[in-house]
C-alpha cells in the first residue's frame, strides 16, 4: 500500500516539502510582512517609541508648566537618589510586591488544590472565582473602602464581634494599616486568578502518576510534597514572576483608595511617578522615575529568570 502523502504531514510537524527554504521566498516574506504590519506598527508607535522617548526625557529638565526644556545629563537621577520620597515609595512598592505575591501564590495554590478534586458544583465555584478578576480595580478600591471603613465597615464589625479587636481599626486612614489594607484588597482580587492558572498547571500533570504513587503507598501529603509540587514548580514560579512584575506596577488601588496617603505610607513608585508627571508636570524628572522603575523591574525579571534556569537545571531538566 502506498502511504497517503498528505496525512504524513500533520499540523505542527515541520514541512517535508523540498526547497521552500524559509526566508528565501520573497513573495511569502512580503505577505507575512504585510500581515504583521498593523500590529508591529501599532506596537512600535505606542510601546517602543515612548520607551525611547522616555529615556531621552529622563535626561532633560522638561517641565510643562514653566517651559524649561534642556538637556541636563544624569542630573535627574542624582536628584532621585537623594530623594527621600523616592526611597519611601520604593520601599512601599517592594514590600507590597513581596508580601502580595507570596500570599497570592500560597493561597492560590491552596485554592487550586481544592478545585482540582471533582465535586458537584465545581463549575459554579470556578466561575465565581472569575468575579474578582473581572471587576474593575477602581471599583475594587471603592468596595474595599466600604468593607474596611473605619466607622461602619463590616470588617471592623466582624472582628469586634469575634473579639479579635477591641475598638474600631482605622484601616486605610492610618499609616500603620493603610498598606496592609491595600495588600488585602490586591490579594482578594488576584488570588482566584492565580488559583485558576495553577489549576491549569495541575491538570496538565499526568493522572497516572497519582495512581502509581498511591499504589506505592504514599500518603496524600507525601504525594503532594514529593511529586505534585516539584512538577508544578515551573508553572508556579512563572506565575509568581508574572504576578510580581504586575504587582510592582500597582497604581489603581492606592491611587483611588488612599491617594498614596496617609503621610505617604501607601505611595508606590507608580503613584509617585504619576503625581510628578501630571500634578507637577515635571515630565523630565517623572520620566527619570519611570526609568528607575523600569530598571528595577528588569532586575527582578532577570533575577527570577536566573533562579528559574538554575532550578530547572538542578532538577535535571
Amino acid at each position: 500500500m502506498q502511504p497517503i502523502p498528505t496525512i504524513a504531514e500533520g499540523p505542527g510537524t515541520p514541512s517535508l516539502r523540498p526547497a521552500r527554504l524559509p526566508g528565501l521566498d520573497t513573495r511569502t516574506l512580503r505577505t507575512v510582512g504585510l500581515l504583521l504590519l498593523p500590529t508591529i506598527g501599532t506596537l512600535a508607535v505606542v510601546s517602543l517609541y515612548p520607551v525611547f522617548r522616555g529615556i531621552t526625557l529622563s535626561l532633560r529638565n522638561t517641565t510643562l508648566s514653566s517651559q524649561t526644556d534642556s538637556f541636563i545629563g544624569l542630573q535627574n537621577f542624582r536628584t532621585l537618589l537623594a530623594d527621600a520620597q523616592f526611597w519611601n515609595a520604593w520601599r512601599n512598592t517592594i514590600e507590597f510586591t513581596a508580601v502580595s505575591t507570596l500570599l497570592e501564590t500560597v493561597l492560590g495554590l491552596a485554592m487550586a488544590l481544592v478545585l482540582f478534586e471533582t465535586f458537584r458544583g465545581r463549575g459554579v465555584v470556578r466561575a465565581s472565582m472569575l468575579v474578582p478578576w473581572a471587576i474593575p480595580t477602581v471599583v475594587t478600591s471603592k468596595m474595599f473602602g466600604w468593607l474596611f471603613d473605619g466607622q461602619n465597615g463590616i470588617i471592623n464589625y466582624l472582628l469586634k464581634g469575634s473579639h479579635l479587636i477591641q475598638a474600631n481599626v482605622n484601616w486605610y486612614g492610618s499609616t500603620q494599616h493603610a498598606l496592609q489594607t491595600i495588600v488585602i484588597a490586591d490579594v482578594w482580587k488576584t488570588t482566584p486568578f492565580m488559583a485558576l492558572l495553577l489549576l491549569a498547571g495541575l491538570q496538565s500533570i499526568s493522572g497516572t502518576l497519582n495512581e502509581a504513587a498511591r499504589v506505592d503507598g504514599a500518603s496524600a501529603f507525601q504525594y503532594f510534597w514529593r511529586i505534585r509540587l516539584p512538577l508544578l514548580m515551573p508553572t508556579l514560579l512563572i506565575a509568581a514572576l508574572l504576578r510580581a512584575l504586575d504587582a510592582f506596577r500597582i497604581f489603581d488601588l492606592p491611587y483611588v483608595l488612599t491617594g498614596g496617603g496617609p503621610a505617604d505610607s501607601t505611595e508606590t513608585l507608580s503613584t509617585l511617578t504619576y503625581k510628578h508627571l501630571f500634578s507637577g508636570l515635571q515630565f523630565g524628572f517623572g520620566s527619570a522615575l519611570a526609568m528607575a522603575m523600569f530598571l528595577t523591574e528588569l532586575l527582578i525579571a532577570i533575577g527570577f529568570g536566573v533562579f528559574l534556569l538554575r532550578r530547572m537545571r538542578a532538577s535535571g531538566g
Partner: peptide, 20 residues
Amino acid sequence: VILAISMFPQIAIVAPLYLL
C-alpha cells in the same frame, strides 16, 4: 518580542504618549 513588549510598565510610556 511582541510578548516582551506587553511586559513594559505602563507608567513608563504614559508621559511620552501624552506629549504625542
